[in-house]
Design a protein around this nucleic acid. Structure first.
Length: 537
RNA sequence: GCCGACGUAGCUCAGCUGGUUUAGAGCGGCGGAUUCAUAACCCGCAGGUCGGUGGUUCGAGUCCACCCGUCGGCACCA
């Protein structure tokens, strides 16, 4: 595939690093799954992929929460970071690294970056004044404070006006350059609606932003963060610390070439930091900017936002229950095809899950594979029949469909359009269904004189299924691996790549007459929506 | 309060700079055909005042105004 959207060589994809006070839930899994799917696809395409995820650990609240739990901050962080690692491993994610911001490889570089900014005058000591919510250890903006009657929105306690010395980053200095970059690179902030949001706010102008917190010297919660270079009394504000992870992890001799990132996958709530502050920090450091910041929306539950107070998170228990009953791939498929990749939130619903599972997987690729393999068994003793000679193409729609599908999948993936890619791939298996109905090999097979023709038909079918399986493997690694195995074909390795690049594998005609095709278990047994939702009690 | 998004068939959504149609797709539903297959597949149908009102225009889901409804962001919680 010589698709221009996909340049060769390296590919670097990141997820947010997750707040280590959280417990992993569907939101974290979704962001990481998107990255995993893209990473698998790019590896299969032959690119040198680096896929990064991790945890953000220097929030002052981590320190205070740890104290509540009777642990040291690092003990608490260790435990929770472990939960994320465990969750992601269970889902088979193929991240190449997992950064924790408390690791020295990160901290050392953050210190270096900030020192550089200080020396250049991009960071300076100034004064910050705002409404301090002591109970939450955070400042509120003037508007927020007024809205809540100058009381803590959480605890209702009085806010106090507080002024402190702070280090600021000269964000305003980079406003024009950022604006130009956004306008000259339409794909920089995606989707479109998010870009417009940023442009709208940019019209109001940028102010310099604080990048430090005081009180680091007195052993308080701020002491947990990375110290401000040359000023032990301040620690680097956790957001700044966190953003640098994308660079720090690859800022090594071996990994430097991965930068700039091809895509930062994030959720919409952290758009501002990634689409404005982060690029400006990079500009100040003279670094190239990431090619794309892609902000997806949220999973919601029965029309309502998932929140602690409602206790309606899709937690790991529920996710595990879905995986146990339907397979990890089934959950991956649901999240990938029904998820909030666009500007609007998506509802997580069991009914929808069953619908999509049955329509796409059980009745779709699963059934198509089953009927083709079954006929090969029935009529050709489980041996791949021989391919038709390549004359009359108009009677053979599938080779063209396969080529088309491969092209479209790769074009879509190049634009982070995972949904489009998967529907193009699934379309190939649907085309097989139509072809079988049109050509009726099962009828022809009743007359032995037709067997050559039947073989030709089934060859096109099984070859198309093979290619569909290859194309779907980034989303359904386990099941498509099993399917390819049934056809005696190479299966994807643990990281999603194959021994040969995708474009080779998608060439028509790799299956040869006589290759054994084995019947396996049904890939996706039909789901019964009458069963109770997995994980419900 | 400020900025913005959205409101199109039962559900989820496409419809870019206004005139390719009697407004589309997928899923669900209904009918038909078929039997290789996981009661699957294939074919056909389903008639939604395109949130409301008023405008601009020869002509508007597609532009403007206002209204109603839902939602998001507003920079030190990540």
């Amino acid at each position: 595939m010589s698709d221009p959207a996909i340049s060769p060589d390296r590919f670097y994809v990141t997820t947010p690093i997750y707040y280590v006070n959280d417990r992993p839930h569907v939101g974290h899994c979704y962001s990481t799954l998107l990255a995993d799917t893209v990473a698998r696809f790019m590896r299969a395409s032959g690119r040198d992929v680096f896929f990064l995820t991790g945890t953000d650990e220097h929030s002052e609240r981590v320190a205070s929460r740890a104290a509540e739990e009777g642990m040291t901050p690092i003990q608490w962080a260790d435990r929770n970071a472990g939960l994320f690692k465990e969750a992601f491993a269970k889902l088979g994610f193929t991240n190449d690294d997992f950064i924790r911001t408390t690791e020295s490889r990160h901290k050392d570089l953050v210190t270096r970056y900030v020192r550089t900014l200080l020396e250049q005058g991009d960071v300076y000591l100034g004064e910050y004044s705002g409404w301090w919510d002591h109970s939450q250890e955070e400042y509120l903006t003037e508007t927020m404070a007024r809205e809540h009657g100058f009381k803590s929105p959480v605890t209702g306690k009085d806010l106090v006006k507080r002024t402190e010395k702070n280090y600021f980053f000269r964000l305003a200095r980079y406003q024009d350059r950022l604006l130009r970059h956004i306008n000259e690179n339409p794909g920089f902030i995606r989707p479109e609606a998010r870009k417009n949001e940023v442009l709208g706010r940019l019209r109001d102008g940028l102010q310099d932003v604080p990048v430090s917190r005081g009180g680091a010297g007195d052993g308080g919660a701020a002491a947990w963060g990375i110290r401000m270079p040359g000023d032990e009394g301040h620690s680097i504000y956790v957001w700044i610390d966190a953003l640098f992870n994308y660079l720090s992890v690859v800022d090594t001799r071996e990994r430097r070439a991965y930068w700039p990132a091809d895509v930062h996958l994030i959720a919409k709530d952290i758009l501002w930091f990634h689409a404005v502050i982060w690029p400006c920090l990079l500009m100040a450091l003279g670094e190239e900017l990431p090619k794309c910041v892609y902000a997806h929306s949220f999973w919601i539950r029965e029309g309502r936002k998932m929140s602690k107070s409602l206790g309606n998170f899709i937690d790991m228990e529920t996710i595990d229950a879905y995986c146990d009953r339907y397979g990890t791939d089934a959950l991956r498929w649901y999240l990938l095809t029904q998820g909030p990749m666009g500007a609007t939130d998506a509802d997580f619903s069991y009914a929808k899950f069953v619908e999509v599972y049955n329509a796409d997987l059980a009745n779709g690729i699963g059934n198509a594979a089953s009927r083709v393999i079954n006929m090969i068994h029935k009529y050709f003793d489980g041996k791949c029949p021989s391919a038709p000679s390549d004359s009359d193409d108009n009677a053979r729609p599938l080779p063209g469909r396969a080529r088309d599908a491969a092209f479209r999948v790769s074009a879509c993936m190049g634009e982070n359009d995972i949904g489009g890619a998967l529907s193009a791939a699934l379309g190939l298996s649907n085309a097989v269904d139509v072809f079988i109905n049109d050509t009726t090999p099962f009828k022809l097979a009743k007359d032995p004189a037709n067997m050559e023709r039947v073989g030709h038909i089934l060859y096109d079918c099984v070859e198309s299924i093979r290619i569909a399986a290859v194309l779907l493997s980034c989303a359904l690694p386990e099941k498509m691996g099993a399917l390819l195995g049934m056809m005696g074909q190479p299966v994807p390795m643990d990281d999603g790549s194959f021994e040969e690049p995708l474009d080779k594998l998608c060439e028509w005609g790799r299956l040869k007459a006589g290759d054994a095709v084995t019947k396996g278990e049904g890939l996706f047994p039909r789901a019964d929506g009458a069963d109770p939702e997995p994980g419900s009690r």
